[in-house]
Write a protein that binds this DNA or RNA. Structure first.
Length: 271
DNA sequence: CACCATGTTCCTTG
DNA sequence: CCAAGGAACATGGT
């Protein structure tokens, strides 16, 4: 459940549940997700710490904690990879098969589970510093967008996944944004002029914003970690619709592979 | 068995 | 040094 909108919805859900809660102990079931932090480091740093803030940056969750002893706040960075989830469970509840890190909060436990263990839960904030502008802020606009691509000839779809260009767009919303902007995913970024950049930037903002709004209706799914996240309740126009008629022009949605990842587009609407 | 999957990083090649 | 492409990571669903 991992692109920007899903992470934003999760952050809004977790924020009131975590702020003010104190961590008693931390158990690490899969140390790989902590890298480069060690299990011992994480346990020592978090024991007795209290959640103060929770923010989102791109697809990352940024937890700020206060340690009982000390002055400087502690930053914990979470990323859900492809299959990560975070939620609270009652203290006695049994853990899921792929629980990676569990924090004992007293009457509850804060669980990070991740089937494929591609995600991260770490004290290292390095990857965050490499992120490009937030698409839902005004630091993101068509000009910074176009300027960042000056020397590239890659396909625009591939570039949209580059987190140093825009933070938070993933494989699903890249297809959706290009569909909305009417731009062919294979178009070289060198051949995109200002009007197209403007349409694309606007489309990215709209698509992500709408997904957040729609994700807001399925918040309850995060609470118990059961069943589906509600992710695919967001209505998608292109992604996953190969062979189905385009809602705008009726031609069949096609699938192609770029840099090893599926792209869905309408050959009629996207040039 | 084959292929697909919401992501990032590392390695190789040019 | 840079850009670009592909494999690796790990598990499960169809």
């Amino acid at each position: 459940m991992p692109e920007l909108p899903e992470v934003e919805v999760l952050a809004r859900h977790l924020r009131p549940l975590l702020i003010g809660k104190k961590i008693r102990t931390v158990s690490v079931h899969r140390a790989r997700v902590l890298e480069p932090t060690s299990a011992a480091q994480l346990k020592r740093a978090l024991r007795g710490a209290t959640f103060r803030k929770l923010a989102r940056r791109g697809k990352y969750l940024v937890f700020e904690l206060k340690r009982a002893s000390a002055r400087s706040p502690l930053t914990l960075v979470g990323h859900l990879g492809m299959t990560g989830r975070m939620y609270l469970l009652p203290r006695a509840a049994s853990l899921p098969k792929h629980a990676a890190v569990v924090m004992d909060l007293g009457r509850e436990q804060f669980v990070y589970e991740d089937t494929r263990y591609f995600g991260r839960f770490t004290l290292n904030a390095n990857s965050i510093s490499q992120l490009g502008p937030e698409p839902l802020n005004d630091e993101f606009n068509p000009k910074t967008f176009a300027a960042a691509l000056a020397r590239s000839r890659q396909a625009i779809k591939t570039k949209l996944l580059d987190q140093s260009l825009v933070a938070g767009v993933g494989n699903i919303y890249a297809s959706e944004s290009l569909y909305r902007a009417g731009i062919h995913p294979s178009r070289s970024v060198a051949r995109i002029g200002l009007p197209r950049w403007q349409r694309l930037a606007a489309a990215v903002v709209e698509v992500l914003g709408e997904a957040i709004t729609q994700g807001g209706t399925t918040l309850n799914d995060f609470a118990d970690g059961e069943g589906n996240s509600g992710y695919f309740q967001v209505s998608l126009s292109a992604y996953g619709r190969e062979g189905e008629p385009c809602a705008r022009c009726g031609r069949e949605i096609r699938r192609l592979v770029q840099s090893g990842r599926s792209t869905f587009y309408c050959p009629g609407c996207q040039r």
